[in-house]
């Protein structure tokens, strides 16, 4: 049964009476801006959209650990090392909160993981860019996490309960991620000329890809409208992108760094900053697997999974043996 793209998410095929009742209940919950919970009836399209979106989000957190993990062993002070370790560790946590939400939709984590490892599932293409310098830790925190937070705050009100709850927890934890990134750049931009140069270079490289994290322009984003009708998404890609640009311009000024966009200027009439066209060809080719680090990121993930197989199996086998031993002991007790 295929879902059509109608605003209410009704199914085009003939529904059974139970499905009709379920659909009516679902529609009412969405119309009241209430929450759908795991065991409620939901349209197939809604379930599939959520599994895809939530698991992609989870995969992004997990792959997103790599560019920053790349600097844990080289962080330039012990305080920064501790902050970075805590942050990358949080990202593993955020991935797990999201997998936990996705699993309530009926797809187990090992299946989601398999989709990631086989290349079937996508993750945010920003993580296919390299983290070359320490300043990238600043730019990733400030711009990449900043964009992620701008995306995620409205998702705290997503119509699917477990997703919204995961986002609340994530947003609370992420508020430190963006601040620590901004602070790294602040220290650099107020440091030696070499440090300031490093900071500017990182901002130059991450600005465009960070703005692209909101997804393609609205007129090129076919799934957005349905997601908004289902109260999963609350604002369009372009709305969120504009909001983000408006936020980071003064933040860049406070850093004493420039944003690499000659068209960036205040538009009195709109009450917003105008900004230049982004390179969507680059965006599409990075998504298609041609980014600088796509292969490397996937290989690292697969290696971790494969190298861990014997450990996971040993723990599972131990649990089986212990359970069996317990049962034998119980039986012996009854026998006595």
């Amino acid at each position: 049964m295929a879902a059509t793209n109608t605003a209410g998410g009704h199914l085009s095929a003939v529904q059974t009476p139970e499905e009709q009742a379920g659909q009516e209940y679902f529609d009412r919950v969405i119309a009241e801006d209430s929450r759908i919970e795991p065991r409620d009836w939901m349209p197939e399209g809604y379930r599939k959209t959520l599994v895809r979106q939530v698991s992609q989000h989870a995969h992004s957190e997990i792959i997103g650990m790599q560019p920053e993990a790349n600097w844990i062993t080289r962080a330039p002070s012990l305080k920064r090392k501790a902050i970075l370790m805590a942050k990358v560790q949080d990202e593993a946590g955020h991935g797990l909160y999201l997998y936990s939400a996705a699993e309530t939709l009926g797809t187990p984590r090992h299946v989601l993981n398999q989709q990631l490892l086989s290349g079937k599932a996508k993750y945010s293409s920003i993580f296919n860019y390299p983290a070359r310098t320490w300043a990238d830790m600043g730019a990733i925190g400030w711009l990449v996490d900043g964009a992620a937070i701008a995306n995620q705050v409205p998702l705290c009100r997503a119509s699917y309960g477990p997703y919204g709850r995961a986002m609340v927890r994530i947003c609370k934890e992420e508020s430190f991620h963006q601040r620590q990134g901004w602070e790294i750049l602040f220290e650099l931009s107020h440091g030696t000329p070499a440090q300031k140069q490093m900071a500017q270079d990182a901002v130059n490289r991450f600005y465009g890809p960070a703005l692209q994290m909101f997804g393609p322009p609205d007129d090129d984003s076919p799934n957005s409208r349905q997601s908004m009708a289902w109260n999963i998404k609350r604002f369009s890609n372009d709305e969120l992108r504009q909001r983000f640009v408006d936020m980071i311009v003064p933040q860049a000024e406070a850093l004493g760094l420039t944003l690499p966009d000659p068209d960036l200027k205040w538009n009195e009439e709109r009450g917003h900053y105008d900004f230049g066209e982004l390179d969507w060809n680059e965006f599409k080719s990075v998504i298609a697997g041609k980014g600088p680090c796509n292969v490397q990121r996937m290989q690292r993930r697969r290696q971790a999974h494969e190298n861990g197989a014997w450990v996971r199996e040993a723990a599972a086998e131990y649990a089986r043996k212990e359970a069996a031993a317990q049962q034998t002991a119980d039986t012996a007790l009854i026998g006595a």
């Binding site: 090392k81 501790a82 996971r312």
Partner: peptide, 27 residues
């Protein structure tokens, strides 16, 4: 610190990270 993003399971990334953070704190 090297283990974070390379552990046998995601839960273990976090566990090893926690231990590493404790030790870094002691250092």
């Amino acid at each position: 610190g090297w283990w974070i993003s390379r552990a046998p399971e995601l839960e273990e990334d976090i566990a090893l990270g926690n231990i590493g953070l404790d030790l870094l704190g002691h250092a």
